[in-house]
């Protein structure tokens, strides 16, 4: 987790300005300045940028898929944990407890080696690419986190809200749908943002199972060029790229929070 929920919401506009200037100004300036001072370095970098970019697009793809999948499954699992029937509650609780405590890398390795490299569907051999396995690994982890976030948010709604819906003739599901969950969205946004940016950063782990993403591309590039200054600058580019991926998630969440706070 990059920062806790309370820290995230307390972050002032001043500190976010500092952050922005490091991420969007200082790091690119370092890369550009260094490239201009040593033009041979600059030339290498320009040559490798498309390759790095193709890797980065994979990080974006994995992040979007893992967070979408993880959020959907997580909300369902969170609600299952609160179900009145034990046969619904228990499997969800077991799932969450097991996967919430598993390191991301372990899950990515597990999904990579457990799932086959291709699947047979109606007699056709369909490839099962490694990046999809990384998505599943990260989605399992984020769904366990988000299940806990959802469960906590629902429990944090005062029981008097449930009482009010009961008094008006709502069923349990109707109360959840119209009254409880809408109030949970606002409460879960800051922790959800933490999970989303953790997953964005966790995509770099996919390089270890051979997925062609940014870390993998940077390692390829530095091995091919064999220059220490290029290696340093390549990883600065990686850092700047991850910043541009995670920072908008934080900004978007802050904006949504403000919008909901008018309520």
């Amino acid at each position: 987790m990059s920062m806790t929920a309370t820290q995230a919401s307390k972050t002032t506009s001043k500190s976010s300005r500092v952050l922005r200037s490091i991420g969007f100004v200082a790091m690119p300036l370092l890369v550009i300045g260094w490239s201009l001072i040593d033009l041979s370095l600059g030339r290498e970098l320009v040559e490798w940028i498309p390759y790095l970019a193709s890797g980065f697009s994979m990080n974006i793809l994995i992040t979007i898929c893992a967070v979408t999948l993880g959020t959907t499954a997580g909300v369902l699992l969170g609600l299952m944990q609160l179900a009145p029937y034990w046969f619904v509650r228990l499997p969800a609780q077991v799932y969450v407890q097991i996967f919430r405590n598993a390191p991301a890398l372990v899950l990515i390795f597990a999904t990579t080696y457990i799932f086959p490299f291709e699947v047979v569907l109606f007699g056709n051999y369909l490839p099962f690419p490694d990046w999809v396995k990384a998505v599943i690994g990260l989605a399992i982890l984020s769904s366990a986190y988000i299940a806990e976030i959802t469960r906590g948010a629902v429990l944090s709604i005062p029981t008097t809200q449930w009482e009010a819906t009961k008094g008006l003739g709502f069923s349990r599901l109707q109360a959840l749908r119209y009254v409880i969950l809408p109030q949970c969205v606002r409460r879960s946004l800051p922790p959800w943002m933490n999970v989303a940016s953790s997953m964005a950063m966790g995509t770099s782990l996919a390089s270890l199972v051979g997925v062609h993403e940014l870390m993998h591309a940077a390692t390829d590039a530095s091995t091919a060029v064999r220059r220490l200054d290029f290696t340093i600058i390549a990883y600065v580019v990686v850092m700047a790229a991850f910043f541009t991926l995670c920072y908008p998630i934080a900004r978007l969440t802050r904006r949504l929070e403000r919008r909901f706070n008018t309520g």
């Binding site: 008097t160 109030q183 606002r186 309520g263």
Partner: peptide, 12 residues
């Protein structure tokens, strides 16, 4: 209908 001591309006 029932009206409660703590009003219990839906804040959102």
């Amino acid at each position: 209908g029932i009206v409660f001591q703590q009003y219990n309006l839906f804040p959102h």
